[in-house]
């Protein structure tokens, strides 16, 4: 008797990614650079978030040709993004054999009310969250991995820090709370009660929690690890930097050795210019990707 698509199999896949860096790539050549640098997985997409931001318009699932090209180029797992609530994009990516789907706010949402019923799929999903309420709602829908939303494509770490601090603080609060206070907290957070109860009993989220959205330097990656992230996604930070291969290697090493400051100093030398960053306050409300989804 063998069972596919169980929680243990789907969440387990993310467990294997812990301590690692998942990199956005737009073609086979970038995928190979990422793999060579020690990425644990690649995210295949048509444009990195910074370019999506610059291009405007509607951002959709990548052309399947890109996904296939990337899949054929590397042996590490391949992830791809579907629009929030876009059932068919997700099913198409599943049919293509991608290893993980990111139901992502980086793309233009297809549904402003409902997220995907991720439990129905054999392929696992990762979803973004700004706080524990959002994270647990996605877990309730069947997400197998959580990441902070941050503010994608800005090269500014401030929002990812805000979201991870928020989540870690809320987890601590749940763990230390009396059991009879839990239902009210579930109401206040808009969180499924059962998921909160699980967190309280086990002292942690029931799945892996990565950081994403604004990581641009090795020090940024190490910072997110110190704040309790299990690993990091780097979107525009690598291939929008001056020397992508060097940046990729340095970010991987800083993620592994996030508390070894002498080493981070060494590996940060002579990397060239990081991607250009943006002040979050310069973004108009409609330009904030993190506010997509709920």
């Amino acid at each position: 008797m063998q069972q596919t698509g169980t929680d243990r199999v789907k969440r387990g896949m993310a467990e294997m990614q812990k301590g690692g860096v998942i990199m956005d790539v737009v073609n086979a050549e970038q995928a190979k650079i990422a793999e060579e640098a020690g990425a644990v997985a690649v995210m295949a997409l048509e444009r990195v978030p910074a370019d999506i931001r610059a291009a405007g318009g509607v951002a959709r699932m990548a052309d399947p040709t890109i996904v296939e090209e990337v899949t054929n180029a590397v042996s590490i797992p391949v992830m791809a993004k579907a629009r929030i609530g876009h059932i068919v994009e997700a099913r198409v990516l599943e049919a293509l054999g991608v290893d993980y789907i990111d139901e992502s706010e980086v793309l233009t949402p297809a549904d402003e009310v409902y997220h995907l019923q991720k439990r129905d799929y054999t392929v696992p999903f990762v979803c973004g969250a700004r706080d524990l309420g959002e994270a647990t709602r996605r877990i309730g829908e069947g997400a197998s991995m959580i990441r902070t939303k941050g503010e994608p494509g800005t090269g500014n770490i401030v929002e990812a820090v805000r979201h991870q601090r928020m989540m870690q603080g809320q987890i601590k609060k749940i763990v230390n709370m009396a059991e009879d206070e839990l239902m009210t907290e579930a109401k206040n957070l808009g969180a499924p009660y059962d998921v909160l109860r699980d967190i309280q009993q086990n002292g942690k989220l029931p799945l892996v929690n990565f950081a994403a959205g604004g990581i641009a330097t090795p020090a940024d990656a190490a910072l997110m690890m110190q704040l309790g992230s299990d690993g990091v996604f780097v979107g525009s930070g690598i291939f929008k930097s001056e020397q992508p291969d060097k940046f990729a290697r340095a970010i991987v090493e800083a993620t592994t050795h996030y508390e070894d400051y002498g080493r981070i100093a060494e590996l940060s030398k002579g990397l060239g210019t990081a991607m250009t960053g943006m002040d979050i306050t310069s973004l108009a409300d409609h330009e904030r990707m993190q506010d997509r989804g709920w």
């Binding site: 063998q2 069972q3 169980t6 199999v9 797992p77 290893d99």
Partner: peptide, 11 residues
């Protein structure tokens, strides 16, 4: 056994 969608558990 294949890619992630073919991943499984068994006793």
């Amino acid at each position: 056994f294949g890619r992630q969608r073919e991943s499984f558990e068994a006793t």
